[in-house]
Design a protein around this nucleic acid. Structure first.
Lengths: 208, 208
DNA sequence: ATATAAATACCCCAATCATGTGATATGAAA
DNA sequence: TTTCATATCACATGATTGGGGTATTTATAT
């Protein structure tokens, strides 16, 4: 029997999902709550295998709750049930530790298959959500290049590996003064003022 | 009609997939190749909407080919068909720009639904693959922390934003000499020797 | 009671970096 | 032809950083 907790602030929907879970032979609903403000205690009390989690709730959001649960009980699986399929909510929920992300319109059809998939080590997502996730991993192909030249990019890559100017010079087979010049131009184009800022920007914007 | 190219080095499998695609009313197979060594020209010639791509092929791998195609023709969708479901291949293929990742054992059952899903803006993945993808986004909860203390982490975060020692001091409300001490400890624990290396490591390993 | 770890602060010195200014060569664009 | 962008190299100065110490306070563990 899979021990399940449910967090959903809409009374009707909470009742409806509760019924679905209760009527399912393999699942045991231990609790259904309208907010996640005491989620830590509840997880400690009930030790659920799976949590069905809404995002928008009074007080603590489902994403914050997910992060908290994962911190105290990493083995608990969390399936997000929500109407939001925007990039920010999806990615934050997954980063917080969600095992799956099911849009509410699919609950009736796919809830049980999603739960099965999670327990088998999968990660159920609706197609649009999956697309968002993999897009977030793909470097923006040529969007914000900041007008860096090839050589400047070479230098930036070398810099991002943690090389000193001296090592960059050796790496690119140019003099250290040329490295300085390139670095100056990189700073102008990236609008930064030091190495760390440049490296940080380069990595976070997928330039390297 | 969806214009399709196929890359697969196994003759039998290539024939078999070719037949499937040819017999499908909505798809038009423009070419089927046993290696991807001339993929750039072929894409330029045939302008496909979709490429079915094996990973292991003589010469250029499907992952390298995917990156090349996406560079010259970003609007072309690429569906990976392979037997490999290890983390490295999956993540590299997706980073290279793949729109979906179908294991070969599922081809017979799921090829057309996967193609449909791609064209509708989705990202078809088998459950195990989806799990790998979202795991790669979730920060290791407390694994490789390098034994950094809270304060050291604060300093590292501030450093990673591109702040100078002076600004870090202001940020953390401590003296600049204390910042230097923390930085020294961070370097020891991360086994690096300068800011850029520390920032690079911090970002890439999810410490910040 | 006494180590031990963490956070704080200070000193010194050599190495590195930020910034400005100037110069040469090449190839493409106006 | 002349300008512009790119890539290269040089020099100088002051600021910042890296690596080496030492030291105090507080809290935790033995």
């Amino acid at each position: 029997m899979i021990k399940v907790l449910l967090y959903e602030d809409n009374d009707l929907l909470r009742e409806s999902i509760s019924s679905m879970v209760t009527l399912n032979d393999g699942m045991d609903l231990l609790g259904a709550f309208s907010d996640a403000n005491k989620v830590e205690e509840e997880v400690k009390t009930f030790r659920p295998d799976l949590i069905l989690m809404d995002i928008e709730m009074p007080g603590r959001t489902g994403i914050e709750a997910t992060a908290l649960v994962k911190k105290t009980s990493p083995e608990t699986n969390i399936l997000i049930l929500t109407v939001f399929d925007d990039s920010e909510n999806v990615l934050n929920a997954i980063k917080a530790g969600a095992s799956g992300y099911l849009l509410k319109k699919y609950i009736a059809n796919r809830l049980f298959s999603a739960v099965e998939e999670i327990l088998e080590g999968g990660a159920p997502m609706s197609p649009a959500v999956a697309k968002l996730v993999i897009q977030s991993m793909q470097k923006p192909q040529q969007s914000t290049n900041y007008g860096l030249t090839e050589r400047e990019k070479d230098v930036l890559v070398s810099l991002s590996k943690g090389n000193s100017f001296k090592l960059i010079a050796a790496d690119c087979k140019i003099s250290i003064d040329t490295v300085r010049t390139h670095i100056k131009h990189i700073y102008e184009k990236l609008q930064v003022h030091c190495q760390t800022e440049a490296v940080s920007k380069a990595i976070n914007e997928g330039l390297v």
